[in-house]
Nucleic acid binder design. Sequence first.
DNA 1: GCCACATGTTACTCATGGGTATACAAAATA
DNA 2: TATTTTGTATACCCATGAGTAACATGTGGC
Lengths: 204, 204
Amino acid sequence: MPRYKWDKTPENRAERKKRILDSILQEAARAFNARGYHKTSLDDIAKAQNVTKPTLYYYIRNKEDILVKCEDKASELINGLLDEVVKPEKTGLEILKEFIRGYIPLVTDDVIRCHIRFRGRMDSPELRKRSNNMHRAIELRVREVVARGVADGSLSTCTPTVVTLLLFGTLNGISYWYRDEGALSHDDIYQEALKMFMAGLAQS
Amino acid sequence: MPRYKWDKTPENRAERKKRILDSILQEAARAFNARGYHKTSLDDIAKAQNVTKPTLYYYIRNKEDILVKCEDKASELINGLLDEVVKPEKTGLEILKEFIRGYIPLVTDDVIRCHIRFRGRMDSPELRKRSNNMHRAIELRVREVVARGVADGSLSTCTPTVVTLLLFGTLNGISYWYRDEGALSHDDIYQEALKMFMAGLAQS
DNA sequence: GCCACATGTTACTCATGGGTATACAAAATA
DNA sequence: TATTTTGTATACCCATGAGTAACATGTGGC
């Protein structure tokens, strides 16, 4: 993997820059998740890319900007999933099930883990607000799905606001204990979560 | 509220020291939750107590020690709840319901919030391990409750390990969005969570 | 081959904040 | 009232790490 010698690959400079930025985000997110934001220095991040700290500033504005860029990517992915699963012809229940299935692989991705753990934690008040708004927008879309399910009768009566908050708690919580090397597959977790959410734990 | 003039109150020195330590933990936990551990300086914490930084070192070993002491208190409270609700004559379902009802008020307490958010995040590897062990012990006790419920037929068949992890995700998640000034009472949340967990969302 | 620009590096600055040495005041004790 | 113990403050040290200035070199176009 040659750094800086991009030879005759058909990749142009913009693409190369984007690829390196992406690599920085990925590695930085992994480090933030493992050691924490403040305990990860820019020197650490630079070292992981085999460059020096000032070079990072060619790709990012500052340390906080890494968080922001991760956030953007996370928002894009989650909203993309919602775009995929929300269809007019489907019931709320159907949509919710598909959302959950799609969301579980997402929460085990480093960049999204980073979003889950550090959203709304930026220093700058504007960025904090931006981050919170982004998340609120996502939450609102899911809340609408739940509300639709209640309206169309596929879900039992409940308070969509609270249910959505609880649901995100459960799903985002997965990101804290899931391990790639672990015995549980995404589908194992999906099955168990689905049974719990949809059928309930109590023996009827 | 005289500091250092403890007058003729019947409180002895040890009690006073404990009371001040408690106040430090409470305020520090609140600050950590609001602004983050690293963005809260010892000067901030000292100021909240109307003392100067060195004075803190009379009550704590160092900054990390605050986290450790919060952890201890959290562990004590949660294990205390478990001691209360786990009784040989009750079914797994009954115990689980009572645990959930008792746990919700706990997760909205600053010290426990602090435990939820910062457990396993200490710098020192020994303290990190200690923290993780404490949490694992709690999780294990709840897992046993779930397993008992499955065994006694009060809960439907499931994987207790996964269900317990998901359950803690949901309940701990509450600590991130619950607001004292909000419209939702602990009981509102409990009712909604219980319906979701026990009966499921899907209309049957 | 030379120029313009894209990437990188070395060598700094500088604020922040955890932690300490030391002196000092208030309370308990004798 | 003298002395010891408990509790608090002043004034410092110093490591860390974000961010910058200035300089160096590779790359593609002319």
